[in-house]
Design a protein around this nucleic acid. Structure first.
Length: 288
DNA sequence: CTGCAGGGGTAAA
DNA sequence: TTTACCCCTGCA
């Protein structure tokens, strides 16, 4: 474990607020100087934008350059993606412009599964609190600059945690779901390594849906926001339903709009980039 | 102060 | 297709 630094010139699409506040991750916190600090697997990383540069500082075992390149998906060129989306219609153009600094992260698959099970029928401050307590209690402690950080607990670290303990941590009715899903993953009933190697999005989705607490929306979030990195999914939550209805469907009562209708519309308009389109629209609507 | 709706859904009826 | 579910927050 040693402190490392890595500096790059700011690429197209890289705004800290857009990346960390667009709803894809829960473990990054803003510092007083405007930089963000978070935990990536067993590395503690601080990201700071200074003029034309991005400065990554961190305490990590591996090479910091490899870690952040993978996590922040720095080899993907967003310029073309954003151009394509902007050309679809005025709404996409507006929302892409609004969220122009968004970058979809490659988050650890296991962590993303558990995090989004926790996110069900829940709000961001509480989700972050639960994940923090979970990490503090069952993860590994790493101290950096006098601050204690905790890694997200592995499936092994959670396998003997009881439903009661989850309840005491504030998981609520999600306690059973976390327990059952952890068991299924530990005993390889669902093999995460196999999922990572399966290029067929629909097959992976079906496997994820076998996990307790993983329904259609959570499955799509896992596919989009984890290292599975599938852009051809379209997570439908209340905000996406709202924005799709307001822009395209224009039904009086948005709760009456069927999921099927939204899905068909997304396929038709956004095609294989629908996951990214969702993210720009979602972020734009929620912040405005 | 109490009551209640609603929040980035899922599972069971 | 409808409803309960844990817990926190905002607001009447």
């Amino acid at each position: 474990m040693q402190e490392q630094k890595y500096i790059i010139e700011k690429p197209d699409s890289f705004e800290l607020k857009d990346i960390f506040e667009c709803g894809q991750c829960f473990r990054w916190n803003e510092e007083q100087d405007g930089s963000y600090t978070g935990v990536i697997k067993n590395a503690i990383i601080n990201v700071k934008v200074e003029g034309k540069n991005i400065i990554f500082t961190g305490k990590c075992e591996g090479n910091i350059q490899d870690i952040v390149k993978y996590y922040f998906d720095l080899d993907t060129n967003y310029k073309k993606i954003k151009e394509k989306l902007s050309n679809i219609d005025e709404y996409l153009k507006t929302s892409v412009e609004f969220g122009k600094g968004i970058r979809i992260l490659n988050q650890d698959l296991w962590e993303t599964i558990i995090s989004f099970i926790i996110s069900a029928n829940n709000n961001i401050p509480r989700i972050k609190g639960i994940i923090e307590r979970l990490s503090k209690k069952y993860g590994n402690k790493i101290e950096w600059n006098g601050v204690k950080y905790y890694t997200f607990p592995s499936a092994e670290q959670l396998k003997n945690v009881s439903i009661k303990e989850y309840r005491e941590l504030g998981l609520g009715f999600r306690d059973v779901r976390l327990y059952e899903t952890t068991q299924k993953i530990v005993n390889k009933e669902i093999d995460l390594e196999k999922l990572k190697n399966n290029p067929n999005t629909e097959e992976v989705r079906e496997e994820l849906l076998k996990l307790s607490g993983v329904g259609p929306k959570v499955a799509d979030c896992i596919l989009l926001f984890s290292e599975l990195k599938r852009y051809d999914v379209f997570p439908i939550d209340v905000w996406v339903r709202r924005v799709m209805n307001e822009l395209y469907i224009k039904e009086d009562d948005e709760t009456k709009v069927s999921k099927k209708k939204i899905e068909n519309l997304a396929n038709e308009k956004f095609g294989d980039l629908k996951g990214l389109a969702q993210q720009y629209l979602f972020y734009w609507r929620r912040e405005n």
